[in-house]
């Protein structure tokens, strides 16, 4: 089975963010990594490959720095990848990215399953996978927590509110957006890291793939949220702060 995994490189969310000119984040102090949800998608794809054979192909839109995390997925066991490195795509929106992913996946040929994270940690949009399925003309399921494949039949659990899962069936080819917790993503091994360096990584522009999609949304600005209710921050070293907190919980909040 040929499986494409759409992977995005995102900032480590524990970074100290700085906004430049209301428009973008200052990348100089930021460490980048694989979007957590996509990491689970890579693992899910590798487990299927181990069971059914085939290939796992990583497809990424992003600048030069993104190739590091494509290689990380190669080191986990993915076979090769397509890196769409194009400023025109970077300045586009989720629709442009979905259009590029569609053409990149079609260029691979015979892909039967596409997996990606349910959302990217940076834009938190959770729309690209669904748009991609629509462009491919394939069915999809979001928030997948369990997956079984029997020939062409996919049985998936879709996570719902309050601890419920919906079980549904569909036929491949399909697009699945993977929720965290579906598996335990593996760490690359040293031989894996060595092999990853030699794996095929095709770099393309949107025009190479015949994509001319225009964004349907416009970014206006970004800013730090202003909270209406800030916690009363208890100052001091841990011992002082802890003593003060206990006193407040006893006498002010009266909850202990």
């Amino acid at each position: 089975m040929k499986i494409a995994v759409c992977l995005k490189q995102v900032p480590d969310m524990e970074s100290k963010f700085k906004i430049v000119e209301d428009k973008k984040i200052d990348e100089s102090q930021i460490a980048f990594k694989i979007n957590d949800f996509d990491n689970y998608a890579v693992e899910a794809a590798l487990q299927l490959k181990e069971k059914l054979g085939g290939e796992v192909i990583i497809v990424t839109c992003g600048p030069d720095r993104a190739s590091k995390d494509m290689r990380q997925a190669f080191a986990m066991g993915a076979d090769w990848g397509i890196h769409v490195n194009d400023p025109a795509v970077e300045s586009g929106d989720n629709f442009v990215v979905a259009s590029v992913l569609q053409k990149a996946i079609e260029s691979i040929g015979d892909v039967e399953l596409v997996m990606t994270g349910v959302q990217a940690e940076d834009d938190q949009a959770a729309v690209t996978g669904v748009m991609l399925a629509d462009l491919m003309g394939w069915p999809h399921c979001t928030n997948v927590k369990k997956l079984e494949i029997n020939d062409k039949t996919l049985t998936v659990n879709r996570e719902l509110e309050g601890g419920f899962n919906e079980v549904l069936e569909m036929s491949s080819p399909a697009v699945l957006t993977i929720q965290s917790g579906i598996n335990e993503p593996r760490y690359p091994t040293l031989p894996g890291i060595m092999k990853a360096k030699k794996k095929r990584l095709d770099v393309k522009k949107a025009t190479d793939l015949g994509v001319s999609a225009k964004p349907k949304t416009d970014f206006i600005k970004m800013f730090f949220p202003v909270s209406e209710h800030k916690a009363e921050i208890i100052q001091g070293d841990p011992a002082t702060a802890a003593a003060m907190l206990i006193q407040k919980l006893k006498t002010e909040a009266k909850v202990i």
Partner: peptide, 9 residues
């Protein structure tokens, strides 16, 4: 966006 650390319009 960014885990709730940044908002955008």
């Amino acid at each position: 966006t960014y885990n709730g650390k940044i908002q955008e319009e």
